[in-house]
Structures are given as C-alpha cells and as structure tokens.
Nucleic acid binder design. Sequence first.
RNA 1: GUGGGUGUAGUUCAGUUGGUUAGAAUGCCAGAUUGUGGCUCUGGAGGUCGUGGGUUCGAGACCCACCACUCACCCCA
Length: 422
Amino acid sequence: MQYQAPKGMKDVSPKESYKWQYAEALAREVCAAYGFLETRTPVLEHTELFQRGVGDTTDIVQKEMYTFLDKGGRSVTLKPEGTAGAVRMFLENKLFSEAQPTKMYYLYCPVFRYEKPQAGRLREHHQFGVEIFGAPRASADAEVIALACALLGKLGVEQLSVNINSIGCPECRRVYNEALRAHLEVNYGALCETCKTRFEKNPLRILDCKEERCAAIVESAPRVLDYLCADCADHFAELKSCLEALGIAYWVDPMIVRGLDYYTKTVFEIISTEGAYKGTVCGGGRYDKLISELGGPEMPAVGFGMGMERLLLVAESFRPIPEPKPVDVYVAAMGGDARAAGLRLVGALRDSGVCAEFDHVGRSFKAQFKYADKLGARFTAILGEDELARGIIKLKDMADGVERELPLDGVDQIKKRIDEKN
RNA sequence: GUGGGUGUAGUUCAGUUGGUUAGAAUGCCAGAUUGUGGCUCUGGAGGUCGUGGGUUCGAGACCCACCACUCACCCCA
C-alpha cells in the first residue's frame, strides 16, 4: 500500500458515516433541548494558549502536542482538547459582556495528541463537548452531567456509572496538598519514579497513579473531600442534591482528579460498566479560574468532553446503530432514448424528494437488477424500448416481484406507491 | 516512551522439516436466463506473499533491520 493515513488517524468511510451522523443528530437534539448553541473554532491555536490553559506540567503539554512553526515563525498547536479554544473564542468575541450564562457545544471537534495509539484511543479523535460559562451554581454542573446522560441514554447506553468528586478551589487545595504531602512524605521512598516528581509539582496526581505500591500508599491518605472550604463543601452538597432532583444516580469517587490542571471544585467521569467496551466515555468538571487565567474576567465555568470514536464504540456495544434508509427506486433504462427518458424520470423523482438511482456503468438489464437489489432498492422502474414507445414504466416491487404499469410522467403516482411502502 | 502479538487476493484466512506455476471461502465481474434481482451452477479478473538486506542450489516460510497494524503499560477521552 503506497499511501496510508498518518499513524493513529482513521478515515470514516461512506459506509459507516451514518453512525456518526446518527450520534451527531442525537447530540444536536439533546443540546437544543438543554439550550446549548453550537460553536466552531479553529483546529489550530497559538501554542501559548494551551501552555497557559491546559497547564505546563501536564503530560499533554509536555510531550503530546502537535506543535510546529507556521511560515511566519509563530508556534502553533493542533488542539489537544476542546476547552481552551472555546474559552479563547468566548474572550475574543467578548461574549462575557452579554447576559450570562453562555451555554455552547461543539461536535466533531478534531483534537490531537501525539501518543501511541491503542483501542479507542487514536492520535486524532473527535470530541463532543459542552461548556457553560458564567454559571457559579452547582445546578450548572448537574445540567452538563444530565445532558451527557441524556445523550448516552438516547444512544442506548443504559449501564453507566456517574462518578463525581470535588477537588476544591486553590485555597482549600493548598491546605489539602500540605496534608497529602505530609502523609506521602513518610512513604516517599516507596513511591514510583513519576510520583516522586509529582510530589513537588502536583501531589494530587499521585492519587491517580496505577502503580500498586503508590495505590497502597494512597489508600490511607487523607481525602480531598474532608479538606474542602465551606464554599466548596456547599457547592459539592448542592451538586449532589441537584443530581438527586434530576433523578441521576451517582457515586462519589474521591480518587478522581482528572488530567488537566485547570479543574476546580467538581470533577466527574461517566463510565460505561457493561458491554464490549467498558471505560470512561465522558469526563469533565468545573474550571472557575481558567477564563481569568487566559486574560478574561473572573468567571466560573463548567463543561465536559466526550470522545466520539469511543462514544460510538460504547453505543454499538449496547445496540446497533440504525442503518439509513435504502434507495427508494432504481431506474433501469436500456437504449439511448430510454436512458434519456430515464434520466428525466430520475431527476423528477429526486426533485420530489424520492431517493432515486440510475445506471452510470452501462450494465445490462440483468446486472442492473442485481445492483438494484444490492442497493436495497424498494422498487425498480423498468424503462426499455417497449415501455418508452408506450409512454409507461413498469414499477417492480422488489420485495414480492409484482410489476405494475404506470405512466412515464406519473411521478406523483410513483411517489404514492413508494410512500405506501415506507 | 516501554513491552508483547501480527503482516499472504478487496475482505477473512490456509499454506506441512525450506522444494514445481501460492490456495480456499467470501466479495467483485460475466455467463447459464440475447428484457428481470435474491437461490443454484459455471467461468473470469484480482497477489511486487509489508519493505530492504542476508542465509541457501532453492525463501511466503529461516536470520537481521526497518515500516505498518494491533494489544497492554505510562497517561488519558
């Protein structure tokens, strides 16, 4: 094979695009019901945006970004996640001066991370994400969680677990970090190498470590939830009661910390617990400091990102995605004049909203029938010299083989027969 | 970045200790039916055996390197 897509990048072929369109249509439906509007931002942003927004210490920024110099010598980066670009758009368009909150979503947003690809994790993937800016109350956190659950429900994903946690604001986190360090210090020698470097920079991340020895140490560590300040504790309590009000079952998982530095207070993950693909489908949280960190006003924010490739894997492990409707009528014409008449018929049918197909290969009648069958055509309109001379077509019902003569210009009658069938 | 597995037709795969012209199924095209699909039968097209080197009289098979895919780890969606 001479050319292939770059490593970790995958095509969506015409045969499978219906799956994406199905999920996208449902996502738009849910977003509309929840009052979110779509935003579209560039695939590229200035590198500083992510260094500042995602966090210099994260693995994403340190080693996973597609960063390069453009012809003007500026360092630009393919989006490694969706939020920073949305915030930049919000600020650049001065949307903060409108009535708040601003609720928006993005669909099929390509994001890039340079890492070794594996199941459900490519170098390029596409995100569905939502953000609410300017909404301090926990009902907003609950709303984005509810939105995610609603979409998953519509896709047939029933077995899921909503895991929530709070990592507090910078103030209570500082207190907690000290307590955590004090606990970890005793066992410092036993930590894995990466965790030793995390110890100074970001001890919270050690909670997330999958190394057995680290997990053992962390087990007895103090919990963030016990160190929340009054404001953050209230917020978390409010979140729980909002979720209860919305009828969303949840688990509090104090080990969720998320990989991005910008989170404050609420963090959450939605995990598929059954089916062929188990794992996180949706992750998000609150990031009250990010907008000001990127040069905007002090304004709270909450949102989530959902990898669409993974979403489709999960959805399909529960229930097949419905295939699009097949061709309504295949027009099989043979002979020069008949083909011309057939083309006119196809055009007229299409104008009236019928999905009509025509032969562009030069197949025999027989082969055209075969092909019509392959396309799943409900009807085949037969138009040969005889029919043309009589000004009719024979409309064959492919399911029972019954043919019926209809006038060649009888688009309405053909359409009526098709509508009866649908 | 670390460690495993796998690369043979469009696809899924056989291919014996290294031995003639690399096979099957499926899909595609055509014919049987000169104007009628699905079922059946017959035929056809389709392969630089991932790439490059090496061992050998002889390599799809053995050795080395590279590339790709894939799974796990790290991390994360």
